[in-house]
Structure formats: structure tokens, C-alpha cells
């Protein structure tokens, strides 16, 4: 009996220490998971300074939904990447900051930002309709909310969605749009649906679309393009978009100091061609709205 308790205790310690170790070593390997957890503590050194002058900043903590390709996701090597994260890296290179990529739960993004866990939300973040809640950078992508359906569904226009079940990601811009009865909102359209079904992530939505339990999914065009490319044949995007809108980097309301630095860098990166290069890499050149002077 005593022997087993000792073994168990040893195992506990080994795992406990390793778990603790990996979450507290900011110098962990480049692996995405390690850097993600490191983010929680690597900022330990800087957390106390975030409220002070931007001149002293050493890290830049970007919160993103790691399930949102092509803007933020895990690449083939298990590293977090995407158009937005590479752009954020470019900003950090200019400023000499260390980029800390912190995956967040999208439902909790406000809490993460307001509580200081992250410095900004930079992840295909729609600014339209949220202007009062965040301090936004200049918009960098012209996005539109579109509808994805199965190719053989017979749905060709927004009118055909009447009486259909439409899926949408929880807490997404598409959902906000479909629930808004203000100018430009699509609540009237949503009212013609049989129901509006919320999903935690796009993967679940696509599985249900494939299985036929929902008829359409509303999402950002960039995400739609990526999903169609990854999943191959069988889906199409309706020509008619729900709206057009812009992506921008979201900062805590009133944090104009940091916002101004990022804006200045974004302009610089546009002018030196970095933005266009990245847009090409991620196949979103038509969407990027930053233009060199």
C-alpha cells in the first residue's frame, strides 16, 4: 500500500511540476501550444507596466481565436499563424516588442481585453457596430458577411433562405448583423428563416451543413474562402452578400496611445509592401483595404 502511494505521489509531482513548468517558462520552445501557455506568464514581467507609458512596453499580447483561419489558426507545424498574426508580428518587429500570441475563447474576448489579459483583439475583428465599445485601429480588410450553402441545395439567393435553418458562430459579427434591426441590419431577413442556429465554431457548423441538419451558414468571406478551399468541392458562396464591413484591431476603449502606434506602423507596412505581400500569401488580396500612398 505504502509503495503505491509513493509511486502515485511521484507521478503526481512529475506531472504537476511539468505542467507548472511549461506554463511558467517564457523561453519555451517555439511550439504553438507552449508559446500559448507561456503567454500567460511570460507577461509576468511586463504585466505591471502595461498601464504605464508605451515607451516602456516590451511585449505585445494579441488575443485571437485560434479557430479562425486564415486570420488566426494553427499551421501545419503546430505554430499559430495567419494574416493577422503575421501583421502583428511585423508591427512588433518595427517597435522591438515581443509578440505574445494568446488564444482566447471568443465568447470571453471582452473580459480578456478589459481585464488586461491581452493588449488587443486582432483576429478578423469586425469594427462596424462595435465602435462604441472599443478603440479601433484603421480598418485593414474589407470584409463581407456571406452565406455558404451546399452546391446541390438549390439555394441561389438570400430569398431562397426563407424557411431554412441557418447556422452562425456564437458572438460573431454575422450573428450581430442578423439580429440587428437598425439601418443595414438583416433582422428582417433572419425573420424569414425557419431558425437561426448558433455554433461554437465553424467546424461544427460545416459538419451539420454536410449532414443536412442545417441548410446554410453565415460567416465572413475570408473564412468562407478558406473553408471552401480546405474542404474541397460541394459548397458554394451566395453571390449576394449580407453586408460589407471592415476589420480592424480592437483595443480597450480609450487606449488611443497604443492604437496610434499600431496605426502608424500599419501605414508604414502598407507603404513598404509588407501588407500586400502577406495578403497574397493568405489569398485575401481582394479584401485588404489598406492602400499605399
Amino acid at each position: 500500500m505504502k509503495k503505491y502511494v509513493a509511486i502515485l505521489a511521484a507521478v503526481c509531482l512529475a506531472f504537476g511540476v511539468s505542467a507548472c513548468g511549461s506554463s511558467s517558462s517564457s523561453s519555451a520552445s517555439g511550439s504553438a501550444a507552449a508559446s500559448a501557455s507561456a503567454s500567460a506568464s511570460s507577461s509576468a514581467s511586463s504585466s505591471g507596466e502595461t498601464e504605464t507609458s508605451e515607451g516602456e512596453r516590451t511585449t505585445f499580447v494579441v488575443g485571437f481565436d485560434a479557430e479562425y483561419p486564415p486570420y488566426g489558426y494553427m499551421d501545419d507545424n503546430g505554430e499559430y499563424t495567419g494574416f493577422d498574426l503575421e501583421l502583428a508580428q511585423a508591427v512588433c518587429d518595427i517597435e522591438g516588442w515581443e509578440l505574445v500570441k494568446t488564444p482566447i475563447n471568443w465568447d470571453s474576448k471582452d473580459m480578456e481585453l478589459n481585464s488586461g489579459s491581452i493588449d488587443c483583439i486582432w483576429n478578423g475583428f469586425t469594427m462596424n457596430g462595435r465602435e462604441d465599445d472599443y478603440t479601433f485601429s484603421i480598418p485593414y480588410v474589407d470584409n463581407s458577411q456571406v452565406i455558404v450553402v451546399s452546391e446541390d441545395s438549390g439555394i441561389n439567393s438570400l430569398e431562397d433562405l426563407s424557411g431554412k435553418i441557418v447556422g452562425v458562430q456564437a458572438a460573431s459579427a454575422a450573428l450581430t448583423l442578423l439580429q440587428s434591426d437598425e439601418e443595414g441590419g438583416q433582422k428582417a431577413l433572419a425573420d424569414t428563416f425557419a431558425s437561426l442556429q448558433e455554433f461554437p465554431d465553424y467546424n461544427s457548423a460545416f459538419v451539420e451543413l454536410q449532414a443536412g441538419s442545417i441548410d446554410a451558414v453565415a460567416m465572413d468571406i475570408g473564412v468562407a474562402n478558406y473553408q471552401l478551399k480546405t474542404r474541397g468541392e460541394g459548397y458554394k458562396i451566395l453571390d449576394e452578400a449580407l453586408n460589407t464591413e471592415q476589420y480592424a484591431v480592437g483595443f480597450k476603449k480609450g487606449n488611443t496611445e497604443l492604437c496610434d502606434i499600431v496605426n502608424k506602423d500599419l501605414e508604414e507596412l502598407t507603404n513598404n509592401g509588407t501588407v500586400a505581400e502577406l495578403a497574397e500569401k493568405y489569398d485575401i488580396s481582394d479584401l485588404v483595404c489598406l492602400e499605399a500612398e
Partner: peptide, 27 residues
């Protein structure tokens, strides 16, 4: 992503899962 990379990524998650488990039990 290759299967081995995926396993690598998942196993780093496993270590953390196991960490949560043992810390919770011990405390």
C-alpha cells in the same frame, strides 16, 4: 498538418491535461 505533428501538438496538450488532473486531485 501531418499526423506526427498533430500528435506532437496534442501530446503537449496531454501534459497540460494531466497537470490539471493531478493538481486538482492533490489539492
Amino acid at each position: 498538418m501531418s499526423f506526427s505533428t498533430m500528435l506532437m501538438q496534442l501530446s503537449s496538450g496531454m501534459v497540460k491535461t494531466t497537470g490539471i488532473f493531478f493538481w486538482t486531485i492533490i489539492l
